[in-house]
Design a protein around this nucleic acid. Structure first.
Lengths: 217, 217
DNA sequence: CTTAAAAAAGCTGATTATACCCTGTTACAG
DNA sequence: CTGTAACAGGGTATAATCAGCTTTTTTAAG
C-alpha cells in the first residue's frame, strides 16, 4: 500500500524558517506543503486558492494577525483542519493560549524534524498530539486554576492616569496639581488602587502596575 | 566556469530552523552546508571535525553559549571565517552587539532566501554585507553616541540587595530587619542611591533601577 | 606594628510625605 | 426620596526624607 502524503500549510512570519521548513518536510516524502503564509491575514487570502490542507503549522507571534487569532479563525471557518502550534516559547501562557484557541498540539522549534513529522502524522489521524511538554503544562494549568489569582484589575480613566503619575518621583500633592484635583481626592484614588492591587504602599502599587503591564516605562 | 560552492556552517538552537535552512540552502546549488551546531559550545566541538567553513550563520539567543560569545570565539581562533548574524530581532541593541563582536553582517529571519544567499556570497567575497537595515542602525548608533547619557551606575552588593528590597511594599524598617542593619544605615544606602540615580524618592529609585535593568520583576 | 586618613556604618532629631480615618457635599440614577 | 459614585475637607499616626554627627572598619603610609 502506498501511503498518501499529508497536505499541510505553514504560517510563520520568518520567511527563512517557513521556506526552510517547507524544503525539509517536502524532502521527507510523507508531507506535501500546499502553501505557506506569513501571517493570519495572508493565510485567509491564500486558503481559498489551494486545496484545503489537513494540518496547518502555526507560529504564534506574527504581525497583523497572530497565531491565536488565526487559529480561532480556522476553527470557526474550517473546523476540520487541524492546527499544530509551532513556537520557540516554552512558557505556560502561549501553550495554554494556543490550545484554548483550538490548536490540537504544540511543538517547539527546538524539536527534531522526525518528531515534527510524527506530530503532523499523529495530529492528522487523531486530531490531537499531546507530547510530554504539553501534557505537563495542561496538568499544571488545571491544578492551579485559581480564577481570582491574577484577576485583571478594572480601572477607570482617572485611576489609570493617577497610576501613571505614581510611577515617577512626583509627590501626591504634585500629582493632584497636574490632575487638577484636591489632594484628598487623590487620597481616594490611592485607597481604591491599594484595595484593587492588594498592597499598602506606593511602591507596591508601582510594582503591581508594571507586573500587570498597565504601565510601561 | 563552474563556480565553487561556498562552504558554510549553521549555529542555531532551533533544530527545525537549522535543518530547514540547511535543506533550503543545499537545494540552492550555491551553498554547501558542512555542519550545524545548536550553540557555541557545540560549534567549538564540531569545527575541528570538519573542513573549515568560509561563513558561519550565527543565531544570537542560544543556551550555554550565545551568539555574541560564539562570534568572539570564532574571531579569536579562526579570524578568516566570516560570521553572518541571523536573528529575528530588529532592535538596535542585538545588531550593534553582534557587529561589535565581529560579525560581518546581520540578516533577519524574515528575509527571503534569495537575499540570504546574496548575503552569504557577498560576505564570502568582501568580508562584509551591510544592508539597509544594518547601515541605518550603525548610523544612529554613531550619531547618538553620548557616552555619559545612560552612565551605568556602580553598586556594591549591599546597595544592590537594598535596591531589590526597595522594589516591594516593605517599609525601610522591615528592609533594615531583613538585612540585619539599623534603619539609619538604610538611610545612608538610600541617600547614596538617590545621588547615583539622580532621584529624590523611593518610587523614582524603583523606576530607575527597572529602566537600567538592575532589577527584574 | 603603628597611626593617620578615608570610607563605611551607625545614630539623633527635625521636617515633610504618605497612609489611613471619618465626615460632608454634589450630582445623578433608580 | 434613596442609594451610589466622585469629589473634597479635617485630622492623626506612621513612614520617608534630610542634615548633621559619632563610631567602627579599611586602607595605606610611615
Amino acid at each position: 500500500m502506498i501511503p498518501e502524503k499529508i497536505d499541510i500549510a505553514i504560517v510563520d512570519d520568518h520567511t527563512l524558517f517557513r521556506q526552510g521548513l517547507a524544503s525539509l518536510l517536502t524532502d521527507s516524502e510523507k508531507i506535501n506543503v500546499l502553501f505557506d503564509a506569513e501571517n493570519g491575514q495572508d493565510m485567509i487570502q491564500k486558503i481559498t486558492k489551494h486545496p484545503l490542507p489537513e494540518v496547518i503549522l502555526m507560529d504564534i507571534t506574527m504581525p497583523l494577525m497572530d497565531g491565536y487569532e488565526s487559529t480561532r479563525w480556522i476553527k470557526a471557518n474550517y473546523p476540520q483542519i487541524k492546527v499544530l502550534a509551532l513556537s520557540m516559547f516554552e512558557e505556560d501562557k502561549p501553550i495554554i493560549g494556543m490550545l484554548k484557541s483550538g490548536a490540537g498540539g504544540y511543538m517547539l522549534k527546538q524539536s527534531r524534524s522526525s518528531d515534527l513529522i510524527d506530530a503532523i502524522t499523529g495530529i492528522a489521524k487523531q486530531s490531537f498530539y499531546i507530547n510530554e511538554l504539553v501534557s505537563g503544562k495542561l496538568l499544571r494549568n488545571i491544578q492551579n486554576n485559581q480564577p481570582t489569582k491574577t484577576a485583571q484589575v478594572e480601572l477607570n480613566a482617572n485611576e489609570l492616569k493617577f497610576l501613571e503619575l505614581c510611577c515617577s518621583d512626583l509627590t501626591y500633592k504634585q500629582i493632584a496639581d497636574t490632575m487638577i484635583l484636591s489632594p484628598h481626592t487623590i487620597d481616594n484614588y490611592r485607597e481604591a488602587l491599594f484595595q484593587k492591587f492588594e498592597t499598602k504602599s506606593r511602591t507596591g502599587l508601582v510594582i503591581a502596575a508594571l507586573k500587570q503591564e498597565l504601565i510601561k516605562i
